[in-house]
Design a protein around this nucleic acid. Structure first.
Lengths: 141, 141
DNA sequence: CCTTGAACCTATAGTCACTATAGGAAATAG
DNA sequence: CTATTTCCTATAGTGACTATAGGTTCAAGG
């Protein structure tokens, strides 16, 4: 008749404190409790938590996941919004990959050109100290 | 005879609260003050803050930047440590790019296969709900 | 000299998505 | 019945800022 939070954690590979956190912020419904106030879950909880975990692996933020979950609960609804969220995520990922590619190029150049002697001639430090470059954006994504 | 925090902000493209934050955590030295306790900076502060900003653009964490700054202050020291930090960063970036590439592939497949009708047939939701996949890692990098 | 308004000051709390800790209670195995 | 494991809540910490509140100082114009 239902299983513990530890068991749910094992079944979904989501850590126990994270499950409690998800409940606290309302992304996972509060389950029923034993007489001693311990949580007892069912298969529905496994499914919902697995959904969240997979979406988190794809780096959807919890806000987006909230929307996706509520869509899932309404199968007759249009899925345009889900599509939109996924597409927005793809755009972010594309941007991030491009930014990281540029970053990698700069790091490689820094490292290659460093003769690895004294700091005075270190290309890594020199590059960072160089103020002649453009002010890029410090985007988070 | 020195300039204000607002001027330093304009010259380095680092926001005023961020500059104060950097001072608080000790990554930027406390500057001298006017009689009215307002901060007054010089060119050295510009250089140091520009260094930090550039390193942040390359996503070095503040801890690594701290080390790099102390290296910069000792030009006769070996730059092996700087090299090491930069190489570690490169490894992280490589990993992140690989992970994001995989993520992009999955997002694209999800989006392409979605007929964009009702949620019941939505490939996006379906993919997220699918529990048959491997438990990947939720690495931060 | 006086006023206005922008820029400055500190201290504190909030962000995101958790993670860690403390101090205790319940469940389960032997 | 005891020992061990797992569970509970509440709170604080993470990184790197960002935002807010409530007050002070500075520079310029009149």
């Amino acid at each position: 008749m239902g299983f513990s939070i530890g068991e749910l954690s094992r079944r979904t590979a989501v850590k126990v404190p994270t499950i409690r956190y998800y409940e606290r912020i309302g992304i996972l419904p509060a389950p029923r409790r034993t007489e001693g106030r311990q949580r007892r879950y069912d298969e529905d909880a496994v499914a919902r938590l697995a959904f969240i975990r997979h979406a988190r692996e794809l780096r959807f933020d919890l806000d987006a996941i909230c929307t996706l979950l509520s869509l899932q609960d309404n199968p007759d609804h249009s899925c345009a919004q889900a599509d939109e969220i996924a597409k927005a995520r793809l755009v972010e990922v594309d941007k991030r990959i491009a930014a990281l590619g540029a970053l990698r190029t700069e790091l490689r150049r820094m490292i290659e050109e460093c003769a690895c002697g004294r700091v005075a001639e270190c290309r890594v430090i020199e590059t960072l100290a160089d103020t002649s470059h453009e002010h890029g954006v410090l985007a988070r994504s």
